[in-house]
Amino acid sequence: MSQAVEKYFVPEPSKFPIFGSFALLCIGSGAVMWLNSVGPGPEVFFLGMATLIYMLFGWFGQVIRESEGGKYGKQVDSAFRWSMGWFIFSEVMFFAAFFGTLFYVRVIAVPSLGSELNAGLIWDGFKAAWPTAGPHAADTFSPMEAWGIPAINTLILLTSGATLTWAHWGLTKDNRGQLKLGLLFTILLGAIFLSLQAFEYIHAYEEMNLKLTSGIYGSTFFMMTGFHGLHVTIGAIMLLVMLFRVLAGHFTKEHHFAFEAAAWYWHFVDVVWLLLFVVVYWL
C-alpha cells in the first residue's frame, strides 16, 4: 500500500523581511546618532521602532492566520521548533558574552592590575578587590546587596515559572480556565518584577550613587541586569499575546507550539536571572 506523503507548506513571498531590515538599520544608526548628539538621532531611532512593531504585528499575524487555517503540518512544526531552539541558543551566547566579561574582569584583570608587576601604573587608591570603582568612576558608590529587592525578584521569577508550568498543564488537560489563570498570574508576576527592578535602579542612582558610569562595576551591573529586564519585557509581551490568543479560542491540547515557544523563552529568562543573582548580586 502506498502511504500518503504530507505536502510541505510553501509560504507566499513576503514584504516583511525588508521592513525588518529597514527597522534594524534605523534603530542601530539612530541610536548611534542619538548617543553622539548627531543629526536627527531620536527621530530615526523611533522610526525604526515603529517599523519594527509594524513588522511584528504583520508577520506574526500572517503566521497565526496560516496556523489557524490548518496549513501547517509536522514538517513545519519541526522547523518552528528547531528555529526557536536556535534562537534561544543565540540568546544563551549573548548572555555568555556578558558573563565571560564579568569573569575576566573579576578573576583575571583586577588581580593582575594589583600585582607587583603593575605597581605604580594604576591610579592612586586602587585596590585589587571587587567591586572596584575604576577606572573612570570619580565618586564612591555602594555596591548592590543581594538581599532585599534582588532576592524578592528571584522568588517572583521562580514563582512565575511555576505558574506558567501550571498553565501548560491546564492546556494539555484541555482545562481552559486553568490555562487562562496561569497565564494571567505569570504576566502579572513579570510586571511586578519589572516594577521592582525600576525601583531598584532609582534607588541605586539616587541613594547609592551607583550609575552606569560607576566604573567597570556599574557598567557590568546595569548592562547585565538591564538587558535581562529587556528580555523579561519581551517575554511578558509574548505571554500576553498568548493570553489574547487563548481568549480568542486558539490552541488545542495537541497543537500549541506557539505557547510552548513562549514558555521556553520565559524559562530561559528565569535561568539567566538565577545566574545573575548568584554572580552579580551574591558573590
Rank of each mutant, 00 (worst) to 15 (best):
I156G: 03
T163H: 11
N153R: 02
L183I: 10
N175A: 03
T159M: 13
W166I: 03
T165M: 10
G148K: 02
N175I: 02
I152S: 15
P150D: 12
I149R: 00
L157P: 00
I152D: 15
T186R: 04
P150N: 09
A167Q: 08
P150I: 06
K180W: 02
R176E: 00
T172R: 05
F185G: 11
W169L: 07
L158W: 11
G182K: 06
G170D: 03
L184W: 01
T159E: 05
T165V: 05
N175S: 04
L164I: 06
G170Y: 04
G170K: 04
K180M: 08
T154W: 12
H168P: 08
L171K: 03
L181F: 05
T172V: 12
F185E: 13
P150Q: 08
G161L: 09
W166C: 12
A162E: 00
L157S: 00
K180H: 04
N175C: 05
T165K: 15
T165R: 15
L179Y: 04
W147E: 11
I149C: 05
L184I: 09
T186I: 05
L157E: 00
L181E: 14
E145N: 14
L181S: 14
L184P: 00
L181H: 06
N175Y: 01
K180E: 14
T172A: 08
I156D: 01
A162I: 14
L184V: 09
E145L: 07
A151C: 07
K173R: 11
P150Y: 08
L155K: 08
L158S: 05
S160E: 09
A162H: 03
E145V: 11
G148D: 01
L184D: 09
L181V: 10
A151Q: 08
D174G: 02
S160K: 08
A151M: 10
T172P: 01
K180R: 13
L171S: 04
I149T: 10
A162R: 04
I156T: 10
L158M: 13
W147D: 13
T186K: 00
A146I: 09
D174Q: 09
R176I: 01
A146V: 07
A146F: 07
